[in-house]
Simulated assay, not measured.
Amino acid sequence: MQAANLEGGRMRLRTWRAGRSDWRVQALSIFSLSVAFVCLASALLVVTNLAAVRDRWSRAGRATVYLRDSASETEVADLQRALEATPGVTRARHVSAAEARREVVSEGADSMLAALPPNAFPASIEVSFENDLSDDDLASMAVKLRVLPAVESVETYARWTERLSALLGGGVTASTCLALIVLCAVVSVIGSTMRLLLHRRKIEVEVLKLVGATDGFVRRPFVLEGATQGAAGAGGALLVLGVLFLMVRGRFDQELVSLLGVAPSFLPVPVALGMVALGGALGAITALLTLRRMAAV
């Protein structure tokens, strides 16, 4: 019994050494998986930032009432007081044309914007609302404001949020499709790698079975290699995407960040860890199913 266990240990050690000798095949497999996971991670990164922008604007709780050029100071003051007294409104701030110009034309801004006169920027009243104000109440208030003589238009940013939601839905659909493509890529790459490795280690496998090794004992190194390849492919994709993200974020327009109210962010840690775990699980399952379909193991 001890001799059999000793022989089994030796053969297991040989199997692990054989695995290390096939590093070129495994490296190619990891590279192929990384390419697939980069596509999925990129889609998830876009979806994450779109969701952040949508949530930011859906919780903005504000509207802009643009005033006509012919509106008198008395009409503007009366409108501002009426808005401040309206239930659900927390603040109504009058922004003159000159103030609007200063907010848009900052230091180092485009020369064409800087050349525009103050009257090119409409005066407005920035209205802030309570967080529990419903969309229906906001829409009803906007309809009433639009009919006032001093009001040119009212922007509630609802259309902007709806467009972002539609774009986000498209991103989620694309991510789902890419996830299926990644699944197919993992099954194809790891399945082919396992068949190639098993063919190259056929002698070691046959010797192991001759000395009494069980199928589970023989499969274990291959399943672990499949899990390692899947996890390494996902991790490599995250590393590449992280480097590219840092390069792009360093050149991101800070004025655009101020306008959107959200800075670009990388994938959350749970999502990144979930991708690595998904890669490892897919790799292990694919390796196990591939080996079970082969008569040798």
Rank of each mutant, 00 (worst) to 15 (best):
D78L: 11
A277F: 15
W57M: 09
G230W: 06
D132V: 07
R200Q: 13
A234E: 02
V46S: 07
F266P: 08
A272Q: 11
S134E: 10
V105E: 01
E255M: 03
M141T: 00
R20T: 14
A100Q: 05
D137P: 10
G169N: 11
G242C: 05
M112S: 14
A71Y: 10
E155T: 11
V189F: 11
A284M: 02
A281N: 00
L138D: 03
V248Q: 12
F252C: 00
V95N: 00
T156R: 02
G169C: 00
S111I: 08
A60E: 08
L289G: 02
F266Y: 14
P264F: 01
R219T: 02
E126G: 09
V76L: 07
S106W: 04
A27E: 04
L180M: 11
C39D: 07
L6H: 14
G279C: 03
T176W: 14
K209W: 04
K209V: 07
V240T: 08
R24W: 07
A120R: 08
A51E: 13
F129H: 04
L28C: 09
T173F: 13
R62W: 03
L241E: 11
R200G: 06
Q229K: 06
L282C: 09
P268K: 10
V271Y: 01
A60C: 04
R220Y: 10
V205F: 06
V182W: 06
R102K: 15
V182K: 06
L291S: 02
L244E: 12
V38P: 00
M141L: 15
L178M: 12
P122Q: 04
V240I: 15
V127S: 05
W16R: 15
E152F: 12
A27V: 13
I181S: 13
E84P: 00
S192D: 14
G274S: 05
G171F: 06
R251A: 15
L40Y: 08
